[in-house]
């Protein structure tokens, strides 16, 4: 499975992320063709760094502006040796850190122009509540990012959709913990445990659509799904926030 995910990452990077990275680059620095120098956070590993290659090749970002996250400390070392990113954070898993370490240095690095939150690059452990926790960490970093004003940025959320059920009630409860005045609460069309990949994709899209409403942002949502087999798919959702600085 690991090797298949690595291979599919190249496909997603070339056919989906690349265009989204270019779009945000154009919005942030419309007049610059080269050296757009966008600030990037990417969850990655040393075995496939295609998003970093694309960011460099397309002049969207450069070494000094890229912060990488790799939960395996030795993979992080290997990634560091490549010399393609400014720093590699090799703590525990991203979602755990974001949700439970309020003082973590990642919060000092905000805001980013690109948040490439690719959980599929981080040695996925198939557990109940995995996707629910991932989405909670996405909302947490999104809300932290929003503190810095109404600028444009993009969140790329990538995860493995497999057989384990996803509980929509947990997703709703998690999201509702982030209080926003006059927000009536997350309202997903599917209730309780969902198993099919189609239902999971629908839920993810609804989550991001309502995230935009909740935080009152003008967002464009797109997804890119790659089937691994009848039970597994790799799903990437782009959440493009059109802020005040649209060129």
């Amino acid at each position: 499975m690991e090797e298949t995910i690595l291979r599919l990452k190249t496909d997603i990077a070339n056919n989906f992320w690349k265009n989204k990275f270019k779009d945000i680059g154009h919005v942030i620095n419309p007049r610059k063709i080269k050296n757009k120098n966008l600030k990037v956070l990417t969850l990655t590993n040393s075995r496939n760094m295609d998003e970093i290659r694309i960011l460099n090749e397309e002049c969207i970002s450069s070494k000094i502006h890229i912060l990488a996250w790799c939960k395996n400390s030795i993979e992080a070392l290997s990634l560091d040796a490549e010399g393609k990113v400014n720093e590699v954070i090799d703590e525990i898993e991203f979602e755990e850190t974001i949700l439970n370490c309020g003082q973590h240095k990642i919060f000092d690095r905000l805001p980013f122009h690109i948040l490439n939150i690719d959980f599929s690059s981080q040695e996925i452990e198939i557990l109940n509540g995995r996707i629910e926790k991932e989405l909670k960490s996405i909302e947490k970093i999104f809300s932290e990012q929003k503190r810095f004003g109404n600028s444009s940025f993009i969140v790329m959320y990538t995860t493995l959709l497999e057989q384990t059920a996803v509980n929509t009630t947990t997703i709703k409860n998690n999201s509702d913990q982030f209080l926003v005045s006059s927000w009536h609460g997350l309202n997903l069309s599917k209730s309780n445990n969902i198993n099919s990949i189609a239902d999971k994709i629908l839920t993810l899209k609804e989550f991001f659509q309502q995230l935009a409403q909740k935080y009152n942002v003008n967002a464009e949502i797109e997804d890119h799904i790659l089937t691994i087999d009848s039970n597994n798919s790799l799903c990437s959702v782009s959440f493009f926030i059109n802020g005040d600085n649209n060129g």
């Binding site: 070392l77 290997s78 560091d80 040796a81 490549e82 010399g83």
Partner: peptide, 15 residues
């Protein structure tokens, strides 16, 4: 062979 030197962290990696 990849060599990366990080002054800030005072480390050098050779892979």
């Amino acid at each position: 062979i990849k060599i990366n030197l990080d002054f800030k962290s005072k480390k050098l990696i050779i892979k």
